[in-house]
């Protein structure tokens, strides 16, 4: 029992990591807002989505503990994420070729 419990506690991060991640998220938000003010034309959307992707990776891995979960959780996440990607790709293949 003790082994299992201490193992779990070992995987539970302290307060510090969350505050650091929060600061990074706030920093990324200010970057995204600043960048949106500059005219980057077509790549503006790509930059915004790239920053949003980094932010969501931080939230999923740290705040939502995926980094500390068993492998099966990551497999689930990958499958649902890929499903979404496939739906987007197939739809755009259709829309783009109309």
């Amino acid at each position: 029992m003790d082994q299992g419990h201490s193992k779990h506690e070992h995987h539970t991060p302290g307060y510090g990591i969350y505050i650091i991640i929060w600061l990074v998220l706030i920093g990324l938000t200010s970057i995204t807002v600043t960048v949106a003010g500059i005219d980057f034309g077509m790549i503006a959307l790509a930059i915004a989505l790239f920053i949003a992707a980094i932010k969501s990776a931080l939230v999923i891995n740290i705040f939502m503990h995926i980094k500390f979960e068993e492998a099966i959780f990551k497999v689930f996440l990958l499958v649902s994420g890929m499903t979404l990607v496939v739906i987007f790709l197939l739809t755009f293949f259709d829309v783009y070729n109309r």
Binding site: T32, A36, A48, L49, A52, K55, S56, V59, I60
Partner: peptide, 16 residues
Amino acid sequence: HLVDLIWIFLFPLFYL
């Protein structure tokens, strides 16, 4: 956190 996650995408796509 999921609610937060969705907003992370809503924000740049609508407001920025």
